[in-house]
Amino acid sequence: MNNVILNHDEITHKIRRIAFQIYENNVNEKEVVLAGIDSNGYIFAKKLKTVLQKISDINPVLCKVSIDKKNPHSPIKTSIPVEDYENKSLVLVDDVLNSGTTLIYGVKHFLDVPLKQFKTAVLVNRNHKKYPVKADFKGISLSTSLHEHVTVVLEGKNFEVSLE
C-alpha cells in the first residue's frame, strides 16, 4: 500500500522554497556548490540548481557525490576536483535523511576541505537519526516507524514521495 505524502506540485513548491532558503543563506556569494548524493540526492540538487538560476544571480555548481551506501567507509568520490569547492559555500543534498549514515559520511568527506559555509538539504527528514546530523533545509519532516519505507521519485512527469 502506497500513501502519497507529497505530490508533484507539493514537491515542486518545496524545491522552490529550499532554493530560496539557499539563496538567502548565500546572498553575498557568487557561487554555491550543490553536492548531491548519488542518485536521488543528485537529481534533487539538479532541480535546486535550475530554480536557483531563475531566482538569483548566484552560479550554482553541481557536484555528484558517490558514496557506497553498503560500505560507507570506502572512499567517497566527487564529480568535480577538491579545488572547485575549496573555500566556497557548499550544500550537501540528499533526498531522504533516514538514519543519517549517508549524510554523516558525506559531511565527513567535506570536513577535510576548507569551506566558507557548509549546509545540508533534504527533501524528507525522517527523524530516525543514528548520528548527530541535521538538515539545515528540509522539505518535510516525517515521524515514521522504522519498518516503513519512504520512496522518492524525482524523474518523469510526476514527482512523488510515498510511504510504504
Rank of each mutant, 00 (worst) to 15 (best):
Y105I: 05
K157T: 14
K108Q: 12
I37T: 06
L48Y: 04
Y85K: 10
N25A: 15
E24K: 11
L154R: 10
I76M: 05
G139M: 05
L154N: 09
D112T: 07
I140Q: 08
E164H: 12
K46V: 03
K157E: 15
L115D: 08
F110C: 04
K46A: 10
H109A: 12
Q117E: 14
H73A: 12
V91E: 02
I67G: 02
H109D: 12
H109V: 09
N2L: 08
P114E: 12
V124C: 09
H149P: 00
N59P: 00
P132V: 00
D94Q: 08
N71L: 13
N158E: 15
K116D: 14
Q117N: 15
D84L: 13
L52V: 07
G156M: 14
R16M: 05
S141F: 02
V27L: 06
V93F: 08
R126I: 08
S89R: 06
N7V: 04
K14V: 10
S79A: 13
E86K: 14
L115R: 09
P72R: 02
V124H: 00
H128M: 11
L90F: 04
I58V: 09
S162L: 02
V27T: 07
K130L: 10
H73R: 10
P75H: 13
H73E: 13
G156W: 12
D84N: 15
K134N: 11
V61L: 15
